[in-house]
Computed example of a mutant assay.
Amino acid sequence: MKICIFGAGAIGGYLAEGLSRVEGVDLSIVARGKHLAAIREKGLRLLIGDEERVCRPRATDDPSTLGPQDFVIVCLKAHQAWEAAEQMKPLLSAHTAVVTGQNGVPWWYAHGLDGRFSEARFPSVDPDGRQWRVIGPERAIGCVVYPATEIIELGVIKHGYGDKFALGEPDGTRSLRCERLANALIAAGFDAPVLDDIRSEIWLKLWGNLCFNPISALTRATLDVVAAEPGTRALSIAMMTEAKKIAELFGASFRVDIERRVNGAARVGAHRTSMLQDLEHGRPLEIDALLTSVQEMGRFAGVETPYIDAVLGLVQQLGRSLGLYPAISRKAVAHPVEAPRLRAAG
């Protein structure tokens, strides 16, 4: 089984170390720059608990040297995955599956939905339909990533917590390709359930990310504060209420209620969200996949989102002012509705 991990950063590197130990897996990774150079020189190093593990997978910045794969696991952020779509072409054959490990709304989300919702496209995560066209939604396998990992130096990944990678076909079938990948991940030591409703799993994680991440970036507050302080808690609940209406129209359901989801976040403790960490380290902010895409879905479905709109406008301006929100051209979402307008109190 040929598996290529496209983007051997914190999550990709963690996956690579595990899969490198599985018999029958022909593993390669695509990385770049000094990180790639460090992996080639000293191997890919994973710090997990009190243990250091080192692997030496085939590593390149040129996918054309690898040939077609059985699975391409994309571990880039959403805007990076869009930029890299054309580079993935040499890895694709008629049977290749592409696993989307990004946070937020995936570019293939509308594939296979009923009625007019199947026509929805989300320029915030797939401008001009590049991934839809180059990769093709029929190749997509959804993946919700739960582990917390970070790059602590070039070529070195530190594992914080978690080992779950939930998988699922957009059409809800339990396919042979999903089973094969899940078995490989389980053999690598990961928890890899195959779900019959991957969209609901995507939304369960996104539900918190779409409010906690931007609010933490705007306030510099940790997750426990955002979820417990009355003002930010109320704002989070308002945003989640808007998002729930949208998600249900787009085929998702929720196995927990809003209060339980927010309380669970509060119990995590003084965690710095990924967007807050990116802000502090001067990295591009992952705004569009987590928030702009939800706004686009609301426009398509005719759901007003005044709280999401307000927070999105603020965090976009924060990103622009710091040069951390790159502008990319976007076409209008199909069948847009007029944006709701906020009314001033009194």
Rank of each mutant, 00 (worst) to 15 (best):
A310R: 13
I258Y: 02
L290A: 10
E286T: 08
C75K: 11
P90R: 06
S274V: 12
G282I: 08
A38Y: 00
Q277W: 01
R21Y: 01
I198N: 09
E23M: 04
G142F: 03
H335Q: 08
G160R: 11
A289W: 00
T305R: 06
G112W: 00
A188F: 04
Q316I: 14
E338G: 03
I141Y: 05
Q102P: 05
L19Y: 01
A31K: 07
G319F: 02
R174V: 06
M240K: 05
I5V: 14
L206N: 05
V72M: 06
L46C: 11
K42D: 13
G346Q: 15
V74M: 03
F254Q: 10
G264P: 12
D61E: 14
V311S: 15
G168Y: 01
A247Q: 01
L312C: 08
L285P: 13
L314Q: 15
R261G: 03
A334H: 06
W108G: 02
R299T: 12
K77S: 02
T60H: 04
Q317V: 12
C4W: 05
G172L: 05
P137E: 03
L342G: 14
G49Q: 12
K164N: 13
V22D: 10
L113M: 10
A166S: 15
M1T: 11
C4P: 07
L291H: 09
R133M: 02
